[in-house]
Design a protein around this nucleic acid. Structure first.
Lengths: 248, 248
DNA sequence: TAACATTTGTCCGTATGTATA
DNA sequence: GTATACATACGGACAAATGTT
């Protein structure tokens, strides 16, 4: 794909941010390799047809984000890492999926509540009446925030989910305690949107960042829904795979 | 999911655009129904803790996009339509997928070229040597732009792809002419990013808009790759489904 | 009819952010 | 670093359209 260095003005998005977004995207797409020295400011300025000060603003923002690393007198370098791949299959387990790609994954409970299910949640979990447990979690890979999720469970089925997740950091482990030894991914719907305020905070993103939203239903071995979850991934750090393709 | 009306200032993204993005997101997520009257400008202004003029800028942008419609003395209304679902399965055909959701789909050839494959394209198509045909296409559903795609084909395998696609507007039809009567989806990788300049133009989006990128390999019945494609969908108009879940 | 409340549309001015030369 | 032009955001005031009393 040709990278078109076109900037739209008066769009509500500052030129320096458009450039920063594009450079960040090129890095996370692999078009700019990790560790490489960035072209000098003047060259970037001509390439994007903007003033040198504008490029400086973009670089400053990316440096603050940790995407670039400026070294006094040497230049600016790409600090970044490769994109992770989240492979969706019938048996989808968060930690297992990333096991070959990172050293360590962690799950952290952000909030929990017992609530009346919305029609959407009730329909997904197949609940006619009764309450649902909702947990808001976030996940890190090698201490980098990777995703945050909101999950709903039938309160009658897994009453201790909150406490069990808090101690184990794993839905799979919490299910085991409730007598659900195995579960399958019934369906996944994938969308994308701008990160909202909570996503920004937990995933440490800047406004306008893109998140991939995976809405999933997990079922037990009898085919009954046990979990309904909406997981938000930073689109810059993660991609979703279906089938057996590997990242190039 | 709680909608948090938080605005980040001095982020390079104008406040009016952050608000517009959030309202657009709420509409396309179904949190605000189609045809409904929006809260008056003053109320939105207090809710977002901004000046009424800033809200007006956001509404003006969304009106220009066709998402909202303002009527003096009466209020501002949601003009929008429902999101389409693109279901990925082994036998994935663009027009068939949307057949039940829209009246008519069209494919349009934007550009084509004969090129030396990049390592990425060569690896995906399993080509050791030789040229590839690249076509840039866009697709409309009921005359609304839905997606645009870049596809690569082995030039030796489907030499007349460009002309055949131009006349039929369908890859499936062009394959038939080249003796490929059936093909399967081997793999799909889904990512998301900001729309680039070409996406903005073809999909009629505003800067900062989000596109879902589906990178797919299609194989013939002998398992040989016949198409490598990167399709960009407007995240506001489309979602991707895997499995058998229906949209709520 | 007239008076009124509600809501969008337009105009003024001012301070700060963004981008250029 | 300085100077200039324009975009963004705010505050206030009033006009125009609509619907109700």
């Amino acid at each position: 794909m040709r990278s078109s260095h076109l900037i739209t003005r008066n769009s509500g998005v500052a030129v320096w941010r458009q450039i920063a977004d594009q450079i960040r995207g090129d890095i996370s797409a692999g078009k700019i390799a990790s560790g490489v020295r960035m072209p000098p400011e003047v060259e970037l300025a001509t390439r994007f047809s903007v003033n040198r000060h504008t490029i400086r603003s973009a670089i400053a923002a990316l440096t603050k984000e940790g995407v670039l690393r400026a070294e006094q007198g040497r230049g600016t370098f790409v600090a970044n890492a490769r994109k992770l791949t989240y492979r969706i299959a019938e048996r989808t387990r968060f930690s297992e999926i990333l096991a070959t790609q990172v050293r360590e994954t962690k799950g952290l409970l952000l909030a929990s509540s017992l609530e009346e299910p919305t029609p959407e949640v009730a329909s997904a979990l197949g609940i006619a009446s009764g309450m649902v447990i909702r947990i808001d979690t976030m996940h890190t890979a090698d201490n980098n925030p990777i995703s945050c999720a909101t999950s709903w469970f039938d309160a009658a089925r897994v009453p201790d989910m909150v406490e069990d997740y808090r101690t184990s950091g794993s839905v799979t482990a919490a299910f085991k305690k409730a007598g659900i030894d195995d579960y399958l991914r019934q369906s996944t719907i994938i969308g994308a949107r701008h990160a909202d305020a909570e996503d920004l905070r937990h995933l440490k993103l800047s406004p306008g960042a893109v998140v991939i939203v995976a809405t999933a239903i997990n079922i037990d071995m009898e085919g009954r829904p046990v979990e309904y979850a909406k997981t938000r991934f930073s689109a810059d750090r993660m991609e979703i795979a279906i089938g057996n393709q590997t990242t190039f």
